[in-house]
Amino acid sequence: MTGNLEVVTTRHNAAIDPVLSAWGWEIPVYLFLGGLVAGLLILGAGYELLHPDRPRSRALRAMPFAALGLLSLGMLALFLDLAHKLHVYRFYLAFRWTSPMSWGSWILLLVYPVAFLHGVGSLTAGQRETLLARRALAPLLRPLLRWADRARRAVLKTSVVAGLGLGLYTGLLLGTLAARPQWNTAVLGPLFLASGLSTGAAFLLLFRLDEREHDFVVRWDVGAILVELLLLGAMLLGFAAGDRSAQHALYHLMGGPWTSAFWSLVVFAGLLVPLAMELIGRRRRLPLAALAPALILAGGFALRWVLLVAGQASSFREFP
């Protein structure tokens, strides 16, 4: 009875909202780009932390700025989705440590300066000269550069932490809506983090990296995909072992309406095929075609889209 009460008060009643489609394309785009940026930050900063003495390619140096641009695009999508756009500032008037949304909005606020400092510190000497030559910029830039260089390792470490937080949060955000059985799993956070790592790596692979960077990124990509597959398996096992609402969530992906999208688009086309290509390419020393990263990116988006749409169609009302 209490279940019914909860269901009525939160409108999670199949008869009231047969499919809760409050979220359209904006949220999957935001979650996808957020994860991608998280992956970019972790890999970019991680490479420099692990191999501080290696030269870095142009693409890797420019990466933090690309991350900023992509994150802004994602934030724009999120902003478009908000019903009360003028109330955005309210997120920043409070911090509730129990709420992932609150965490998320503060993490986003942290990502911007960290990525910016990360990017500024990555500028080459030549680029710095060009920028400092501009009279208007110089007084602002000079201390910034000095500080970014001095605190370089701290910036990089914060970058990794911010990336980890961002990646986890994109999954945990859905997990807070426990009323949706599809999202009522703790796996979503690590799953989206792993997926973000692999999409971030795939995005980097679209650009020209030097050989050692390429190796590093592919190795991490392979690892991230393997972890992602394990986590997807864990998610399904968790659903299978759960109560009837979880069975319903499992049914969505195993025989139900999102089965083909999940297995064909996400698992097969988005994970297994590019994984096979990366493994084959590593063994045979083949240059990696742009198709593999493109498939990973498409698969990463499809993962979020499928889980989001399926989640909005799953409810407790149907299966008490």
């Binding site: 025989g255 309406p257 999102w258 089965t259 083909s260 064909s264 097969f268 086309a269």
Partner: peptide, 13 residues
């Protein structure tokens, strides 16, 4: 032996 959605996955393979 299996449903429509699974048949699409079989088709992909």
């Amino acid at each position: 032996a299996f449903g429509y959605e699974a048949s699409l996955v079989a088709g992909t393979l």
